[in-house]
């Protein structure tokens, strides 16, 4: 296991990527979707413009809300940034790695979710309450899938730190391939659910009744909304790194590793765009089944490792 703080230059790069890159990913996804539908679509950098615009705008607050209303956006971004320190971007070790950081990683997203749900409930709107309830219920299924995936990878690599877990050389080879594919399949389901993507949730829908994540942030505006949007894109990158890291080839050269990672991230965004274009949204009652499939996949991956 590498020491807690390694390669200061890479740390700086890591932080820069975590801070600046995320808004690009939703733009890329949107572009892919637009192209698939035969439209031109908004520019890839649209979210940067949106964020800059929102940061200048005045926020509107409902009379029902308290300071808890602001805690959601703040926690989303703060927890996402801290979580980004724990996950390796490509074959460069994460800035902070220690035994058990995978648990902290998952719980940081739990923290963000908890406060987001509370800030939704703070508005007193029944629609936002509905979205919050769905978010809470679905994440209760996503969490075990994530953890069983951790368990399988930890079993395979004898470590509970994200860096060695995801970057172990032997993962893609031999008898570990099967379990790895299952884990990644489970995590892909978690990824779609956690990032409120089709087929679980539709970020672009206009009917509040059918939303999950989007309806929770209906009342946010101005800077809080900017944080919410930025936090969502951050989540796409950080959880995305979890998905693509084991699949990336190790080049052995630092700068090349970074390029490979960025390329992988781009491919992931394209893949998400393709999935969103090709599938329809599930009925709400089917979402739990989808997530249970994720749990089963990762549990099965773990069992495969035992035999």
């Amino acid at each position: 296991m590498p020491g807690p703080l390694v390669f200061p230059a890479h740390v700086a790069l890591h932080l820069l990527v975590a801070l600046l890159l995320p808004p690009l990913v939703p733009g890329l996804i949107a572009k892919v979707k637009a192209r698939m539908a035969g439209r031109t679509g908004p520019p890839v950098l649209q979210l940067y413009h949106d964020l800059a615009k929102l940061a200048r705008k005045e926020a509107v607050f409902s009379r029902t809300t308290t300071w808890v209303f602001l805690a959601g956006p703040v926690a989303t971004v703060a927890a996402g940034l801290v979580a980004s320190l724990l996950v390796p971007f490509g074959h460069t070790p994460a800035p902070v790695a220690f035994e058990g950081d995978a648990v902290l990683f998952a719980y940081l997203f739990g923290l963000a979710r908890f406060l987001t749900i509370l800030s939704a409930l703070d508005t007193g709107s029944s629609f936002e309450g509905m979205g919050a309830a769905r978010e809470a219920a679905f994440s209760a299924l996503a969490e075990p899938a994530l953890f069983l995936g951790f368990a399988a990878l930890a079993k395979a690599t004898a470590s509970l730190s994200l860096t060695p877990m995801l970057l172990s050389q032997g993962l893609a080879a031999g008898r570990l391939t099967g379990p790895l594919i299952l884990v990644l399949a489970a995590w892909a389901i978690v990824y779609l659910a956690e990032n409120s993507r089709i087929p679980v949730d539709d970020p672009n829908t206009h009917l509040e009744l059918t939303m999950i994540h989007e309806v929770m942030v209906l009342d946010h505006s101005g800077r809080p909304l900017a944080l919410v949007l930025y936090g969502a894109s951050l989540k796409l990158v950080v959880l995305g790194a979890l998905l693509i890291d084991p699949l990336l080839p190790a080049t052995g050269r630092g700068w090349l590793d970074w390029l490979v990672f960025l390329g992988g991230l781009g491919l992931l965004a394209v893949a998400v765009g393709l999935v969103e274009s090709a599938t329809a949204r599930f009925r709400m009652t089917k979402v739990p089944q989808f997530l249970v499939a994720g749990v089963l996949a990762s549990a099965f991956a773990f069992l495969l490792l035992l035999v």
Binding site: R113, F114, A136, S139, A140, P144
Partner: peptide
Amino acid sequence: AALALIGALAL
């Protein structure tokens, strides 16, 4: 898995 489930439900 149980701990994770408990955590999510407690949340």
